[in-house]
Design a protein around this nucleic acid. Structure first.
Lengths: 269, 269
DNA sequence: AAGTGGTCTAGACCACTTT
DNA sequence: AAGTGGTCTAGACCACTTC
């Protein structure tokens, strides 16, 4: 019987048929061994499969029983690992169907990264207008935030989002050029649906977490013109850094929100 | 053996010695029966004990084994109930010690409701200056948000918070007068520590959840003077509604944040 | 009927804390 | 040594979905 806090032999033995990539994962390689709980090791292995694209967003992952057999642990241990992954929104469980890789194409994921809500009425998707898409050398600040070298290639995007015909959000994005190689204005314009959906389907990069720093700033002249408001109107400045697997930053986004008819909704719990 | 989705006889039988308040809880009273999972019923019962003050913030609650015996279920079922309560920050588990009722006096709880962070340096507690404390009839809007009748008694508090001597936050609070009966300016001024800590210890009301609506607004003349900034300087407007057990609203807070040296930090995950 | 995740149990042992 | 929460197992049955 496998005991707590002891490495599962099936997981640490590369010659075992339990798993194919034993010894390459975080808690399984390197010295000294970490002796994390078994379910954490399983969780790491599943996360690696998600990261590697073995199971893609929207797809079904193996059943709990199958994973338990593969990893030579009980179903309960696999269950606990998947429970945590579900709590982190990396997978979605569906009773009777199975467990699926989370995707930004699902309706339930739309408002996790869009916190601007109309003061009255139901939230709905904005109209996007791409202003500019170009490649450039990463400014020092952006390079630092993206964990790149200053001058490395980045894709720069500028767009305006309108609700009911009223321009409300103006934002600029910087993405690592290496990852988003074929990203063009045409592709962005013709694509229907959430931008993070495009990123995960076309570029194999799924945003799983983000941090935002919010400030109040006055509208500059160019911004005021685009948003059709008076110069110096207070706007919400939202600087977002998005991360994919392994806490790797893959997007810097600087947005200005007009909050005359919308507000940033946040729930503290 | 108790089956899934079937009411636990020990929980639904008032004459049982399993629990003293059987029949009074949400899933246990009323018709038709809800047939929620056992662990959800246990969770409800524990929440009721928290709400009733049977176990107060900071105190130790009965062990899993003891609760399992009391409720006539297995330890695993109690564990799952407590796991969810811990995830909701209602209790805190400490290995080897036991499970404790969460409290706003703990250091770990300080920054759950204070999202304003300094742009540089470590976060630290602000200096509080009480401007005004008085009783008044609830304005219509406040009454609506607090689920009270317009004109009901509320406690009104106005204060300024400074970081490193720089006035940064000006906020106004409305609290139900019935709950916060003995709240005076003196008590607020002499009290050291987080205000929610005072609320939970002195008034038996623990804030467990809040929603915030954030906008950018220009500083009015009186606000500008208090914050020592120019009129019309953009400020973050944060309207918070706090809830205690049973999703009962117990605080309306309208704050203005100066974001020249601070930002509102939010993590999307 | 078969397969999936969801619930519940009983028992074992481990890590941590206090006595 | 005793008590607590933390991990792991094995087995049972339930609810839901698909075949």
């Amino acid at each position: 019987m496998v005991k707590s806090w002891v490495m599962n032999p099936a997981l640490s033995n590369p010659s075992s048929n339990a798993i194919s990539n034993a010894g390459t994962g975080t808690p399984l390689s390197g010295l000294p061994p970490t002796f994390s709980p078994l379910y954490q090791q399983i969780k790491s292995l599943i996360t690696q499969s998600l990261q590697s694209g073995e199971w893609k967003p929207g797809e079904l992952i193996p059943s709990e029983m199958e994973l338990a057999t593969r990893f030579k642990v009980s179903q309960g241990t696999v269950r606990k690992a998947i429970d945590e992954l579900a709590a982190e929104n990396l997978v979605v469980r569906r009773q009777g169907k199975g467990t699926f890789v989370a995707s930004h194409h699902e309706a339930r994921a739309q408002y996790r990264f869009l916190k601007l809500m109309p003061d009255v009425g139901e939230p709905h998707s904005p109209d996007n207008k791409i202003i500019e898409v170009k490649r450039l050398r990463a400014p020092a600040e952006v390079a630092r935030l993206l964990d790149m070298k200053s001058g490395d290639s980045v894709v720069f995007i500028k767009r305006i989002q309108s609700f009911d015909g009223i321009p409300t959000i103006i934002e600029e994005l910087w993405l690592p050029g290496l990852i988003f190689k074929g990203l063009t204005a045409e592709r962005l314009i013709e694509y229907k649906g959430p931008m993070y959906g495009l990123f995960e389907t076309e570029f194999g990069t799924r945003m799983i977490r983000a941090t935002e720093k919010i400030r109040a700033v006055p509208a500059a002249k160019d911004v005021a013109e685009l948003l059709e408001i008076a110069v110096d109107t207070p706007l919400l400045s939202v600087e977002r850094i998005s991360f994919t697997y392994g806490d790797k930053p893959v997007e810097v986004r600087r947005a200005l929100y007009s909050t005359s008819q919308h507000h940033y909704q946040n729930d503290l719990s």
